[in-house]
């Protein structure tokens, strides 16, 4: 955890500094008590102090034991997160039904190595169920896209 906490502390301090800098542009105190800058400023200060404490504690920690790298795990992680991002990017263009179909298809195939039949059925059922429940029944205006779905 040493390395992680050192990085976490640095990130907290940097983020806190940005918050304090930005909050200092807002009025801090007004005629009737505190202004809009009060709470963001102090939350920034607390983040900085917390980051320093975290860094200090991590500094004194013994070095991390070596971890066995897990490239396959990292690959799965990136694939999952990346697919969600791509699906969300595509949603306004393809419509949610198609993009959600693709999301499930890519992940079920990419992660589970299921047969294409399972991939097809699971992604079709997911997209169809979401369409029926959210669009047809609850009338959530999900992005429709080119196919009108």
């Amino acid at each position: 955890m040493k390395k992680g906490d050192l990085i976490g502390g640095v990130i907290s301090v940097l983020f806190g500094l940005v918050v304090v800098f930005e909050a200092s542009k807002l009025p801090y105190w007004g005629a009737q008590g505190f202004g809009p800058g009060f709470v963001p400023l102090w939350s920034g200060v607390v983040i900085i102090v917390g980051g320093l404490l975290l860094f200090g504690a991590a500094w004194r920690m013994p070095a991390d034991p070596p971890v066995t790298p897990d490239p396959a795990g990292k690959m799965r992680l990136l694939l999952t997160a990346g697919t969600v991002v791509v699906a969300a990017l595509l949603m306004p263009y393809l419509g949610f039904a198609v993009s959600m179909f693709l999301l499930v298809a890519v992940l079920v195939r990419g992660l589970g190595k299921h047969s294409w039949l399972v991939v097809g059925i699971s992604s079709f059922l997911t997209a169809a169920a979401v369409y029926l429940v959210f669009v047809r029944w609850l009338m959530v205006p999900l992005p429709a896209g080119m196919l009108g779905l």
Binding site: V84, F96, M100, V104, V108, L111, K113, H114, P141
Partner: peptide
């Protein structure tokens, strides 16, 4: 491996339907 993608779909659609916004 089938349930997790399904959960992701629900989180995306659920977040969207909070105030109909991307």
């Amino acid at each position: 491996t089938i349930m997790m993608p399904g959960i992701l779909v629900l989180t995306v659609v659920g977040a969207y339907s909070l105030s109909n916004s991307m």
